[in-house]
Design a protein around this nucleic acid. Structure first.
Lengths: 212, 212, 212, 212
DNA sequence: AATGAATGAGATTTCATTCAT
DNA sequence: TATGAATGAAATCTCATTCAT
């Protein structure tokens, strides 16, 4: 019998999350002080620690929400495009959506503090395992779609699906990293080139031909 | 008229660099305290500050040395392989060299603290411009090789060379990032898949064919 | 809605002030480390910084309290002496009070670190303006008393009141400075001579006569 | 048999003194780094320490030179004014010379770092005794002139000459202090008022009359 | 549950002085 | 003598987290 209702707690939690997202975006992860979140959320230090064990926990909550969004993206695209979509187009749309989506306000900032978080804490045991879970979850999504593409006769990769998954996830992150961390302009042509390369991989362009 | 010779000073500088490289690798960039470098190098605090203005300057020196190494890598490969090497093979070798090279002791650690450095400090003006210079330098190297491949009739990319450069540099970083930061196993197959994808891009696999 | 009452906070603030006053007196301003104040007050480093932004702020608080005391001194003397006091006597008492008061325990030490503070930091903008405010406040007090003395027909200075104020404040400080900073014995006769000189000024001893 | 002549050494010493004077004036005593003096003098760190044991010794050398100047001031005034000068005029000239002299370039800066030096180091034994010597030397000069003024029938102080000396030296310092440390404007009227007051003291304005 | 004052272990950099060359 | 690289003991302020109220 909680003294305040679950609804109230959820509202409060969201207030905190929103404030954290805002401040992390503004200052980056390490430069954000708990006091900044206190100031922006209007909730007291103790209040925040009631709902989140640490600054880290706050990030992880945000990261999980973002992960859901990204995992849902294939479904969203499917829904938007309707049934006439083939798998190649699905992937193309996905890459464009993610990379062009970086220009939406706030998105780069989130990517920025996320990269910062992982690279700062990647050595900690519990962070390692968390990263692994996230990767696996995402890889599953990807693999199942690729497999469907293969079943549909559209994809014919010459290498195992999981390895393709590694490449796709990694390189997509790399495209984002160079843009948001190294601050290099990301052009439309680069996005197209990237998509082409990934599609080649999935479709299985004949190596011999390609490589001479 | 220096009190001690330039040689001695160079030796001392290297002592410091070596110690910093060791400690950064061991603890990561932000977790490294100047005291750690002092302890490991056996050189006094003031002594280190005689040669390097800050921890940041120490990192940048290391990063510059690594950049040289990476920029030289194409030449090294050419020299090793002799003249019979074609450009496709040159790139394949390059990708393998970089990615398999991660298994050499110390290499991952260096990548790790480098990612950490850039993601932590990427917002600072002078770091931004440094990142940009490094990117441009590297892009130049890459572009000139791709252009030679085109002249040789081996490459026929369907997109501008600079955009290809962005994709290659970014995605290669991404491959490394996922492995060293997210701690995901990097398989031989993934390296191969990655190389295939990049080669498709350079050779210009016919899009229509590829994408249906 | 403070977690602890305002009273408790005031007590804590005073604890810190007292400790700072003690340590400044003991070691001087620049030789006092925050750690000394921490040790002597028994309050944690962070606790002190909760109440005072810096060592400087701590000094200024002390200095303001002392300023109040000194500004009140004329009133105190009036109250003690009753109505039969004339303005000449008021000033004489004031000079004696201040200069003989230096022999009270702790007073010299306070003067000492105050001189140190001002001479060390006098070039900083915000310190300059602070010094100016303090001077003006004090000058006002002095001027209004001198003016009353004039109205009462007791004083007849031959120069503007503000300039007299400058001389009185400056020279009184000088008397203190020589004693506490240069460590020169301050005799009763010197105090008397000083008072005579200042009184001449206020009363307006005929110049011709004086100067031949 | 010195390897380099005394002349060369004297030149070198002066080079250092000049540089120190310049930098102390520019930055104040505590803010001056030995490296600043090295940079400005063009003489190496070791070189400076060959001639002066410490930063403190450097200040003391400068202070001694200035003391000589100030001690000579009475003679200079006498010489300039010729024999028709009486003692009252001598003192008046002296006060004006010192106080108006503050407007000469560099003079305030010297006063500033001198006050800083003494107030920072006044607690050290050897500094205390140095200050005492300087005071005595100066007091002697002053006393002997006052005595001559008495002999000449011009002065008739009602208090011992040494106490008058204390008052004159102290208050003159105080006038300077308020101007250069507290940054308060020093007016012509204030200087006149100050001179009047001191002259009253020397001439011995009848107390009863003055004080009612 | 909520508050926010208190904690205290750091972390970077400075600089007078020394001394090997 | 002259040089200037090396020393290393400080010293200020930060901030995630706790816990008495």
């Amino acid at each position: 019998m909680p003294k305040i209702s679950h609804d109230k707690m959820a509202i409060r939690k969201n207030q905190i999350i929103d404030a954290a997202l805002y401040v992390f975006s503004d200052k980056g992860y390490s430069q954000t002080k708990m006091d900044d979140i206190v100031a922006y959320s209007g909730i007291s230090k103790g209040g925040i620690y009631t709902y989140f064990d640490s600054k880290e926990a706050l990030f992880i909550e945000i990261a999980n929400q973002r992960l859901q969004l990204r995992r849902n993206l294939f479904d969203v695209i499917k829904a938007e495009m309707g049934e006439q979509l083939n798998y190649s187009q699905l992937f193309r749309h996905y890459f464009y959506r993610v990379l062009e989506g970086l220009e939406q306000p706030g998105t780069q900032a989130i990517a920025r503090f996320s990269f910062e978080f992982w690279s700062t804490l990647s050595k900690e045991k519990h962070i390692k395992s968390l990263a692994y879970q996230r990767y696996q979850a995402f890889l599953n999504d990807l693999s199942s779609i690729i497999l469907k593409g293969i079943e549909a006769g559209e994809f014919a990769p010459s290498l195992p699906v999981d390895d393709l998954g590694y490449v796709i996830l990694s390189t997509l992150d790399g495209m984002i990293h160079t843009h948001v961390i190294m601050n290099i302009q990301l052009t439309h042509n680069a996005i197209e080139a990237y998509s082409d390369a990934m599609l080649c991989l999935l479709i299985g362009c004949p190596k011999k031909e390609c490589d001479l």
